[in-house]
Design a protein around this nucleic acid. Structure first.
Length: 529
DNA sequence: CGTATTTGACCGGCGC
DNA sequence: GCGCCGGTCAAATACG
């Protein structure tokens, strides 16, 4: 907690210093400079601590290594996994940051995979990598695959890629995750009135990464994006951020040590900890994959009361719920009889929605941020609205709309909330998990490493720049923009056309809900075109 | 005309 | 074996 506060204070001091300077001239300049320096030193210490944490957590559990390898080529990954001695693995960990910067990938040591699949083996993994490398499968490859020994194929089928789902309130067709996608299919999924859209990464022609985008059946304002596969190419800066987040979450999913603490592997649902802690995991707010029945059929659910990690033998899946717990009916489903919910506790487990909110909010409200006060929720989104408060879409822009009222929480408020002993104990239990530490450390490292930059670019790259609802400069979905514009004209009858790149205030949840509710009968509005 | 999207057809896995 | 379902392909279509 002190470490986290250190980050916050660094930023707040920085901004306050700048603001004071503007208001009072250079009166307190030296003093503030000195204070900033002190906090900056603390931040450096934090970096060192995090580096040590990453190193320790993996070296202590060598046999359960979960490697978060982002964007490295499959071949390189495979060779890395062959390294057996401690020094080499520690060197891997030291290189983690460089690896993370390249893309999304989730790799496990074979011992970790065993917990997920009976058929896990190096051979099976290699087969999967081979498949990835040859994707997209041409008809020739397809034919070859089909004529292979059936046992070989079935073996491969049992070892499918881990998936990372992100649930977030989003009013556009897709989240802006920084990558470039091409839609290749759309299907109506059972149990969901909204169609599911299939995208593949087009940054590189051979990139095997795919994603599925679907509205949550229970709350159509929630967009569920499922990522699968490994980018085999460098990613844009804005895309690396989501890679950090999803990889950290995936590392928890694949963590045997965590699983062993949570309960028996095959139980359907395993109550984990005091429910209140779940809310402190916000950014790593793991929820059941109930949105997709295919995932829940043979799933294990290890949940933090209202949150859960869901895996299945075929597709280990983890869901990052970036939606507000207060407003998500999905989350409510997992909180029966919840009696105590510390919305803003001071644990350092706040991670996305809450953790990055004050961080980025404060950062982006700085005089150096061109986004100012508009960027005030989750640090993720800005949105446009006209003077009447209606959401307007502005086509291509770095940040686009979010549909619910920001619930900005200042860091000071958080810090002042007393914690019940149960929460402290539960928090301690979770944070004692090396893999959790590793995941948190990886994400924090990403933040600390980048987030102290003094411009909004740094903020974007460091703080979960999901740009929910925004299509990005990299995206090629020209039709999305145009269709979005027309869609919003339909959805909001009085919404005038806003000039592009405008930044606006937030849309109240009710407005968005009515909007989505009224359009729920025409589900294709959300994904179908 | 090139590129992206749409959409019906097709395929494989899985349960009965 | 059959049907359901998720996922993918590819021709047709839309768009700039």
């Amino acid at each position: 907690m002190p470490k986290r506060n250190c980050i916050y204070f660094w930023k707040e001091y920085s901004m306050e210093a700048k603001q004071s300077e503007e208001i009072n001239g250079n009166k307190d300049h030296n003093k503030l400079k000195r204070e900033m320096g002190e906090v900056g030193e603390g931040n450096d210490n934090l970096k060192l601590s995090l580096a040590k944490l990453v190193k320790d957590s993996t070296s202590d559990e060598e046999s359960e290594l979960v490697s978060l390898s982002l964007g490295i080529s499959s071949t390189g990954q495979h060779e890395m996994k062959k390294k057996k001695n401690r020094n080499e693995k520690m060197r891997e960990n030291e290189d983690l940051k460089d690896i993370l910067a390249l893309g999304l990938d989730i790799r496990f040591d074979s011992s970790a995979i065993k917990n997920l699949s009976h058929e896990s083996s190096c051979d099976g993994e290699r087969k999967e990598e081979e498949l990835s490398e040859t994707w997209p499968p041409s008809k020739v490859v397809k034919t070859i695959m089909r004529t292979r020994d059936k046992s070989e194929v079935s073996q491969h089928a049992e070892l499918k890629k881990a998936r990372v789902c992100i649930r977030a309130r989003c009013d556009t067709l897709t989240m802006n995750d920084g990558c470039q996608w091409r839609k290749y299919g759309q299907k109506m999924a059972k149990g969901n009135p909204c169609p599911r859209a299939y995208y593949r990464c087009t940054v590189s022609p051979s990139c095997p990464v795919r994603k599925q985008v679907q509205r949550c059946a229970e709350d159509m304002s929630i967009l569920i994006t499922t990522y699968e596969g490994t980018h085999n190419h460098p990613l844009p800066t804005s895309a690396t951020t989501i890679a950090y987040t999803t990889s950290a979450a995936a590392s928890m999913l694949q963590s045997p040590s965590l699983s062993s603490q949570l309960g028996p592997a095959n139980s359907d649902t395993v109550p984990l900890i005091n429910s209140s802690v779940a809310y402190n995991l916000n950014a790593l707010n793991f929820t059941s994959s109930s949105y997709d029945q295919q995932f829940s059929k043979s799933s294990q659910h290890l949940y933090f009361h209202n949150s859960s990690i869901s895996t299945s033998n075929s597709h280990p899946t983890i869901t990052l719920d970036l939606t507000s717990p207060q407003t998500s009916p999905h989350v409510g489903k997992f909180t029966p009889g919840l009696s105590f919910i510390p919305k803003h506790s001071s644990t350092n487990l706040h991670f996305s929605s809450s953790t990055f909110s004050p961080l980025q909010s404060s950062m982006l409200q700085s005089p150096w941020s061109p986004y100012g006060d508009c960027f005030n929720y989750e640090g993720l989104i800005t949105q446009n609205s006209n003077q009447n408060g209606f959401l307007t879409k502005t086509g291509k822009q770095p940040f686009q709309g979010h549909l619910y009222q920001p619930n900005y929480i200042s860091n000071r408020v958080i810090s002042q909330q007393p914690l019940p002993d149960s929460v402290v104990a539960a928090t301690k239990a979770i944070t004692a998990t090396p893999k959790f530490q590793s995941a948190i450390a990886a994400a924090l490292t990403a933040y600390v490493g980048n987030g102290v930059r003094e411009n909004h670019v740094g903020a974007e790259s460091a703080g979960l720049d999901l740009n929910l609802g925004g299509d990005m400069p990299y995206t090629t979905k020209k039709a999305d923009y145009t269709s979005n514009a027309s869609r919003y004209k339909r959805m909001s009858s009085s919404a005038p056309t806003a000039p592009k790149r405008n930044l606006v205030i937030s849309q109240p949840l009710q407005a968005s809900k009515s909007s989505f509710g009224s359009s729920s009968l025409k589900s294709n509005q959300f994904i179908d075109q």
